[in-house]
């Protein structure tokens, strides 16, 4: 069964890069770049994995994550968070918000793939 990954990110070149990598792995990728409508879109798509940027226009990645954890439908959804700020404080905030995995930009494509594979397979 085709696993679906949703990517919420506002930088077009990064969206293109991640989409390319995941598509070649055989995953279906939906993309979205606005923070405020992210949760609605999420409920509609029901992906197997969410890749979430922190700095989004309209709403931060943390807020989106907290909201979806409160929703019973998405409470168990694996979430990989990406951030360009890379301070330990950001990782702590992400973990408190209920993240499954956390990566700092720039990332290695192989590492990204490995993490996605693990998350999609149901491990953490």
């Amino acid at each position: 069964m085709l696993k679906r990954v949703m990517l919420i990110e506002d930088e077009p070149n990064i969206i293109e890069a991640i989409s390319f990598i995941l598509s070649r792995e055989g995953l279906a990728v939906d993309t979205h770049s606005d923070g405020t409508t992210a949760n609605d879109r999420l409920r509609a798509c029901r992906p197997d994995l969410l890749i979430l940027d922190v700095m989004l226009p309209g709403k931060s990645g943390y807020d989106i994550l907290r909201e979806l954890r409160e929703d019973a439908d998405t409470a168990e959804l694996p979430v990989l968070m990406l951030t360009a700020r890379g301070q330990s404080r950001d990782r702590e905030m992400a973990e408190r918000a209920g993240v499954s995995a956390f990566m700092t930009k720039p990332f290695s494509n192989a590492e990204m793939l490995a993490t996605v594979r693990t998350l999609v397979a149901g491990g953490v």
């Binding site: 070149n13 890069a17 991640i18 070649r24 360009a84 890379g86 930009k105 720039p106 990332f107």
Partner: peptide, 25 residues
């Protein structure tokens, strides 16, 4: 610093990702 980090990391992310794609694919 956080801002600079973000501003620098964002283009670097694209550069790294696509250069790896070009190298590995």
């Amino acid at each position: 610093l956080s801002q600079i980090s973000h501003e620098l990391r964002t283009p670097m992310t694209s550069i790294r990702a696509f250069s790896e794609i070009l190298r590995d694919t």
